[in-house]
Design a protein around this nucleic acid. Sequence first.
DNA 1: AGCACCCCTGCAAACGTTTGCAGGATGCGG
DNA 2: CCGCATCCTGCAAACGTTTGCAGGGGTGCT
Lengths: 359, 359
Amino acid sequence: MRHEERSPTLQDVAARAGVSVSTVSRVVTGSVAVEAGTAERVREAIAALEYRPNLLARSFRRRVTHTIGLLVPDTSNPFFAELARTIEDAGFAEGYSVILGNSDLSPVKQETYIDVLLAKRVDGVILASSGLIPRADGHDAVERILEAGVPCVVVDRDLGEMPVDQVLVDNERGGYLAGEHLLGLGHRRIACLVGPNDLTPSAGRIAGLRRALAEAGVAVAEEHLVRGNGRPDGGAAAARTLLGHGLDVTAIFAFNDQMATGAVGALQRAGCRVPEDVSVVGFDDIPLAAAIYPALTTVAQPIAEMGALGVRLLLDRIARRDAPWRRELLETRLVVRESTGPVTRREAEIEVARGSCEE
Amino acid sequence: MRHEERSPTLQDVAARAGVSVSTVSRVVTGSVAVEAGTAERVREAIAALEYRPNLLARSFRRRVTHTIGLLVPDTSNPFFAELARTIEDAGFAEGYSVILGNSDLSPVKQETYIDVLLAKRVDGVILASSGLIPRADGHDAVERILEAGVPCVVVDRDLGEMPVDQVLVDNERGGYLAGEHLLGLGHRRIACLVGPNDLTPSAGRIAGLRRALAEAGVAVAEEHLVRGNGRPDGGAAAARTLLGHGLDVTAIFAFNDQMATGAVGALQRAGCRVPEDVSVVGFDDIPLAAAIYPALTTVAQPIAEMGALGVRLLLDRIARRDAPWRRELLETRLVVRESTGPVTRREAEIEVARGSCEE
DNA sequence: AGCACCCCTGCAAACGTTTGCAGGATGCGG
DNA sequence: CCGCATCCTGCAAACGTTTGCAGGGGTGCT
């Protein structure tokens, strides 16, 4: 550690430039015009001292931190990693830094984080698909934030009529698109690989799938609805479960690309061909989805827009606290790649096929 | 927005409890004993008012923010996402929040970020494999931070004897392990898929590979060293380049799992079997590496330890600024999975094989 | 010359905490 | 009863900025 002195303050600069602190403050912020010569002397002093405004003091005084809090379930999930990335970018572009927190969907961790964020006086909070488990006293995370007078936008979690800004994606339609696609390829027996929770994104996706299937008069059997941990190994495990029951489906719809990837891998490893023996469709469209072979057919989420819009909504709210609540619904899009194809096994064969994929 | 009033302060609590602000402060912080009855009254007032300490004011006064800055190249890269995650976790466990920034390896973005972090008076910053391009005036990012008197630890970038805490991984040995493994399987013609930059991690890996090969009297040809953007599509593009030159290698060593995955996908899509026709080894061991088929053989980095150790070093430095510099070297580990196998094509066949993998 | 402005600058208060210092009360030993 | 230590509490200064207010000097107009 070289310097042990405190960093220079307005005081120091003022002394060196022979002016008052107010004047220095004014040239630093540019809030009020300062005579050219004076300003120049001040700037020299600033440069000489390597003065850096103490944003802590400024924020304290002005009651504005130019910092936002971002709470996501888990940044090692590529979807949230990407979302966080775009939010960070958009925030940075507008002069905001972001304090990032992983909630792991744990109510207590989330509570703790919100306390910290509020105490640190962030200008706003973005809650991503998290923070939504009501507490015993009925105040959920969103209400606590709002009651503290701090702007908040919820991303990727449908809170319905609740008075809060929301940006969400049409999960129902995403599920529907996947169902429709699979149906069009002749699939009738479809497994559904759901995530670790039943938050609204999951609920919407399965509802959409069911609607599509219902229109064709088919249903998803209870034993074809298998739950995974949301990660690749969970997808693989789920696929093995399906295999263990004798694979009596011709298609799998996974609720995210990681599980889909894990499922594809496990299927192939067991000797099943994708898509010849079983088709797989994922959700999210993470970068890796297009890279693997077979490339994943998947329901793409507009992650970048979600992040950018979330930031926009938050900044708008910060600027105008009494504006009407907004609820933005973004579209999903089916991107067809290599992991889905027409059914080749006739319905009748399926029963016979039980166990045929195994080594 | 419900409440428009300012949030309650020590003043308000003091007034309600009929004591002085100092007393309230003392029960809040527990710094000095307070008589039981008084303390109880104060606590009631705090609860009634929903008082929340203004951490901004406290930090300002105490000159400690309990916030650290984390600068990484890009959190959408799974390696950094995971690293950031473990750092966030370790920090949270110790009562620190983290302000996250993506530098994109851009010097100006990085400069800007460091300015912000220093101005916001973070207690320390962790620089991940970034921030290391010297400026015109010779002061690189690390020096600027250190000169400001702010603790700093560098992760995943070897700064040699530079006086700064470093945690790094033995990239050279990682490259060596990969080379050794491939050599043992009979591979002699090996392509190397390097990343978008020549920072020390890349340099170490290729040096290690070269050392292993040199021991067996083989070299990596200039045209077998191809550069990718570090992402899956870059890996795929690189594989296609190799294919275009007639695939005259039997193995590919990619500098991260994403490029490796992209390469594997592109190879398979072109009709090449992995590992029968060409073996592929990656680096990092991201979760998806084990999920795809064939599962990636890869050089695993101890990401969690890197993050945890980085935080440890930083907190130690914050606590004791004059402690000797530490430079921790972590080990890599080869994990052999399915994407590598013995060469099946004899050397002589390779020339004939040119183009054989293509459709 | 007087007056009204405008431009620039300094003074001082304020933001919400923490903390050194001192004072009042209490208890205890001599 | 005195001296002294201990415990609890309040006072007020300080942290580094911002900003309302006021004052001084200049300019232009009447």
